[in-house]
Design a binder for these strands. Structure first.
Lengths: 106, 106
DNA sequence: CTTTTATTTTAGTTGACACTTACGTAAGTA
DNA sequence: TACTTACGTAAGTGTCAACTAAAATAAAAG
């Protein structure tokens, strides 16, 4: 889980994620967007993002297409919500306790 | 904004945030939870978290009390939702389709 | 004013990570 | 087959962030 946050924390990787936010892109096209950075460097970042579960890879001929993996971000969102507002969390916990009580009555 | 993500990415800082998740703690108490780490090190991490807007500092006598700052996490949550929410993605795609139609009419 | 307590700040060291260059690989093409 | 395209992987290097130790600061107590 921390792996995903660390992947997100790199400025280059963050830019990559913004690029493929709406539609998949090839590794070459992604690297082409960067000035002053070699293609292997971008490839390594793509590897980090993939290992972190934030993107998926699809092979198309000699190209590799990368796209966002919503599941990865969903998990991060859940994680952040736990920090979001502790008071709300307490209320939610209480509500769920109530819910369970009701279920057990059946 | 990236600053907050980078702050969150450090394992030590992540632990600190979990500690003060429910209630404020003094710098000393926080540092006391860590084995194999000096107090200055923890203090530096607290500084990073504060600069990133994730925690707030309150002075009480010679102690400094730290607590979570929900606003900081709220912004992060919004950021992630932009990557995650499929409904937003669909809306954007539809908007671009419209945009293309308009262009072709010229 | 001096001492104590709690903590930050400064200075300096070291390990991890982001690069580059060079090489390897897999799929398409002549 | 040999060549080209589009990549990833390996090895080496420099930079930066996390740490420690020592000094500075700030508030309370004596």
């Amino acid at each position: 889980m921390l792996e995903a946050i660390q992947a997100l924390a790199g400025p280059t990787r963050f830019s990559i994620l913004r690029m493929i936010r709406w539609e998949e892109m090839s590794a070459g096209d992604i690297a082409g967007q960067f000035k002053n950075m070699t293609r292997p460097a971008v490839s390594q970042h793509l590897g980090v993002l993939r290992k972190a579960g934030l993107i998926t890879e699809r092979r198309a001929g000699t190209s590799r297409m990368y796209s966002l993996r919503p599941e990865g971000f969903a998990q991060l969102k859940i994680l952040l919500e736990d920090f979001w507002d502790p008071r709300l969390m307490k209320l939610k916990a209480a509500a769920e306790k109530e819910e369970n009580k009701r279920r057990r009555k059946k």
